[in-house]
Design a protein around this nucleic acid. Structure first.
Lengths: 140, 140, 140, 140
DNA sequence: GTGGTCTAGACCACG
DNA sequence: GTGGTCTAGACCACG
């Protein structure tokens, strides 16, 4: 299977960080297993159409954080003793930050908490419907 | 009273963004009230020991976003919210965009809607407490 | 081909705003297409004989407004519009705000709704012609 | 009757220009007649709670444009030979500019002309209803 | 090589 | 005295 990473160059998030986040996420959900081999820097660079230096920087960060392990001459692998709780924690820390940021924006513009809650519920419902209909489509 | 903004130059976060975030936070928790005057660009620059241009940049972003209101020759003030029906309508149109943006980001990282809802509720409670304590103070 | 921007320093309009308006205009009439690359900040600065900071300021405003997309280390591009349903929704929320703003301004100057409608139709026709001629050129 | 001028310090438009525009508008709709006396600079400054220099600058511009006539020691008056067509033209020039600006914003964000027309019609209807209901209220 | 941030300092518009 | 604009130039992050 092709390596499931999507890059959004227009998002403003540095590409190397997008790669880091995406790989962490694949590990967190179990799509990448301990000891599994990652594509080489060059191959991933070609696939994502980015500079090899950019992929290299992402791998270097993941290596330093212990998520992957680079073995000179052999390749790059998911670390085999992944402290599962570490990844889970990372993931749990990110979500509150995203939501806090949205709350900060809204509150600083003068919206009231109750107003925000009401519109949030409405948007969640809208998303739920959209995902359902998309799922149905993709089943077809 | 001194203006409660702290800058951490070593944090890596651009100074002007730190100022933006800090002021939004003060507005969000109600520590800065509509129509309240902010320190002048030059005064805040001296206080934080940064260049006036850096403070000006932060103020300009806040102005563009509608958090503060700059009045040439007079100073800078926290924006007030009129109950004017037009402004209310414009405000209501902005809120879904803010929340959709957060939902999109969380979903693209692989979070599930139920998870997002749970954490959202928790964050709302946290903000409610922070604001409640501020309101109580100002009543005293 | 040279980048078609002219600056009139003596007009009193800030240079960075002239650049912003000019680029918006080129996008509006279809002379600049989605994903097209803009000249680099430094190159445009040389061409217009202004400071790079001034160009950077213009690009940053256009980026914040979603007209262009800046990609660290790669360059600056005209934003493309995905047909992604989320983005479409966000776009639809922005349009009423833009039009309401114009309506509010005209009404507050004492114009009547019927008068505004008539002039609006006339301006739409004018824009349609400007865009049509551009489209025809690009077909040729 | 009190002098019917409202200033919006938060609008970003320089106060002296707001005064100029507002007086021109009152003249254009016939609320201020040729030879009618305007309030003194000091009195208007007090009424609007702005600096007398600001009012003085507005009067100076109106004088230069021939809309009013300042008579040393007697006071300030609406010019008695107001070329009616001049004011009408001013008013007619302003409206297309406002609408063009909105069209430029919308087109540069990628909206299509037909889309813009549809939403414009909808917003005009909304305003029409709002003004009707407001009128009814104010009759009561 | 690309854009992003920051400082220093000048000059102007507005009140 | 207030904010707004612009230049000049340094240094950094990203690809």
């Amino acid at each position: 299977m092709p390596f499931e990473i999507e890059i959004r160059p227009e998002s403003g998030v540095p590409i190397y960080l997008q790669i880091v986040e995406r790989i962490k996420h694949l590990v967190a959900i179990g799509a990448l297993r301990p000891d599994e081999q990652l594509p080489t820097i060059r191959r991933l660079a070609v696939e994502l159409r980015v500079d090899p230096n950019t992929v290299a920087r992402a791998y270097q960060i993941l290596d330093r954080e212990g998520v992957i392990s680079t073995q000179q001459g052999r390749g790059t692998f998911i670390a085999h003793r992944l402290d599962d709780s570490v990844l889970t924690r990372m993931r749990l820390e990110k979500l509150p930050a995203i939501l806090d940021h949205a709350l900060l924006e809204a509150l600083s513009l003068g919206y009231e908490l109750m107003e925000i809650e009401a519109v949030f519920d409405e948007r969640v419902q809208a998303w739920r419907h959209e995902r359902l209909s998309t799922d149905t489509e993709s089943e077809a």
